[in-house]
Design a binder for these strands. Structure first.
Lengths: 346, 346
DNA sequence: ATGAAAGCGCTAACAT
DNA sequence: ATGTTAGCGCTTTCAT
């Protein structure tokens, strides 16, 4: 029903290639002809079929962006940043949500593959080998996962987790827990590895709880598995941390009075809840921008800049307080947002 | 670089049409041939090009979903519901964010047009006439806006706003304000119309503040324009309500002690903040499902079911309390979540 | 059951 | 500056 290039050609009495040029290389066509063609096109409501165009040019001017959970407040800033960066390169972004489902990821990559110039795979849950295979079918940039040979943008959560643990042990906490993230998450593995090492280095005990769904409900459920004696918990992300706090409070425990909680991500929500959440800030917007840049840096040697590692920071708010052990105040250099809170802030 | 249908044909010694059938109508091809073709395809890593297929079949099995702001927690539940409903129909959903920008909406509709079987236009900011025009280029279902002749899914915010105002006047509030939403929002107009009428009916005064960006910052800014004497504010959405509460508190006003605040949407966040927000719950998941169903109910007479109007409900929590006037307790039928709170709950 | 041929809507050499 | 021709990767009659 919609007008095609042929309709316009017929109406304006020129060959279709002239119509084509009018839209894709206007300077190559006579001004008079051009205006006439444009007028006819306008009148017929003609729009070039981008899919057909892409079939032959190989360029869609679209970017795919696949996230594990669009409802996780961690992603919107990343998505927004990717969009504005893409727009700067004249590209549009199509976002798809996998619902934390590895199979859905593969499907969506394939569905998007031929409709985009490349895909940003954020926090993938599927296997490395599958990602490598898919990267042969469509240009891929992986976010929040490091895979040899593939362009990737990661955040230095290992450092963030270390800072968080050091903050807690510095406050005198000796018996810690880690509320792990979902199976398949590279970030969760990194956090686990780093937190474990940091705890050992500080002579503290750290129990790993999980894997868990990286949601508020996931955190809520973890609360029931926090053993007596544990006085501080590091959560895989802020959403879990918030759910965990809720769950601990339901059990009659006070945060940070009885248990300190640290999140990761620094989502906006973390500043609005009471107590305000101590957390590791991840530069999500920068990640979105960097990922788009890598994806669109085509002919250039993507190899040399195949990995962007972005810095994280510990933001100390009100969900962490002194533990039972000797209190060694944290290095002030670590304190980004606010001075350490009093004993109870709630 | 990726293998095409021709590569597979060559490798398996058959004509390309046989390869095509192997993928799109397997029962029409001999079992032996089929397995051979499949083997070759597998080995070459061949994937049918969905864009090329769509060019000829006219079906992409994709749905576009355009939202004003992906960071607004109102949307994720709607998106999720649309996705799962789409999946039930073997479709994928591509989400695009317009950043509250009417021009971006038009662009994105056009970018998506030929890559999807139809588009869900959520909370559009552009003009009705432009939407009507676009609906001639691609099947459209509009969400949160009612346009004659176009299939639409709306929520009965008019009723919700009325219930909210009645709740407030019932509590004795006489001087009210409405923090309006963004320009171009149908929902905002509906709320305004209905709230104004309800206030008048109750003999209360209602001032309209705005338009405003429908965000926390928007609400925060509105706080400065709430005149002394105003004891209750209805906000365009929960995000604004939350920002408004923050802003009022910064001015030294207590919620609901000095000013009552009601939001609209009932986003998850509303249950987590203190005070918990009194709000009008909108059935976003149902809207997402209904919109997908309408879009995919193709040949069927879309005309007859061209409008789905979903019910809203008032959820009374802790951000509303007694006003200065005589207190007439609300009809218990209106109270959905909890009994009316005491004087101060914070 | 398979092949041949036409064509979806468009662009990109190559002519003129 | 414009028309001609070929073809992107695929499906779909129509033959055989």
């Amino acid at each position: 029903m919609p007008a095609t290039i042929r309709d316009v050609a017929r109406a304006s009495g020129v060959h279709i290639s002239t119509v084509s040029r009018t839209f894709s290389a206007p300077h190559l066509v006579n001004v008079e002809t051009r205006t006439r063609v444009l007028a006819c096109a306008e009148q017929l409501g003609y729009r070039p079929n981008r899919a057909a165009r892409a079939l032959i040019t190989g360029r869609t001017f679209n970017i795919g962006l696949i996230v594990a959970d669009i409802a996780n407040p961690f992603f919107p800033p990343l998505i927004k940043a990717a969009e504005s960066q893409a727009r700067r390169h004249d590209h549009h972004v199509f976002v798809a949500d996998t619902n934390e489902d590895a199979a859905a990821e593969e499907e969506l990559v394939r569905a998007l593959a031929k409709q985009v110039d490349g895909i940003l795979l954020c926090s993938p849950r599927m296997s490395n080998s599958l990602i490598e295979q898919l990267s042969r079918e469509v240009p891929l940039v992986v976010v929040n996962r490091q895979i040899a040979g593939l362009p990737a943008v990661v955040m230095d959560v290992a450092r963030g987790a270390r800072l968080a643990i050091e903050h807690l042990t510095g406050l005198g906490h000796r018996t810690l827990a880690l509320a792990a993230g979902p199976r398949g998450s590279w970030t969760s593995k990194e956090i686990r590895r780093s937190a474990t090492a940091a705890a050992r280095a500080a002579g503290a005990e750290l129990t790993v709880l999980g894997p868990n769904p990286p949601t508020e409900d996931g955190g809520l459920a973890v609360a029931d598995h926090v053993r007596p004696g544990v006085t501080a918990v590091l959560a895989y992300n802020d959403l879990m941390a918030l759910g965990l706090i809720e769950g601990l409070q339901q059990r009659g425990l006070r945060v940070p009075g009885d248990v300190s909680v640290v999140g990761i991500d620094d989502i906006m929500l973390s500043r609005l809840t009471r107590p305000k959440l101590t957390t590791v800030a991840t530069p999500t917007a920068a990640a979105g921008r960097a990922a788009v840049d890598m994806l669109l840096a085509h002919g250039d040697d993507r190899r040399t800049t195949a990995l962007v590692n972005l810095q994280t920071e510990l933001v100390i708010r009100d969900s962490t307080g002194p533990g039972p052990g000797p209190h060694c105040p944290a290095d002030p250099g670590d304190v980004v947002a606010a001075p350490a809170p009093g004993v109870a802030s709630h």
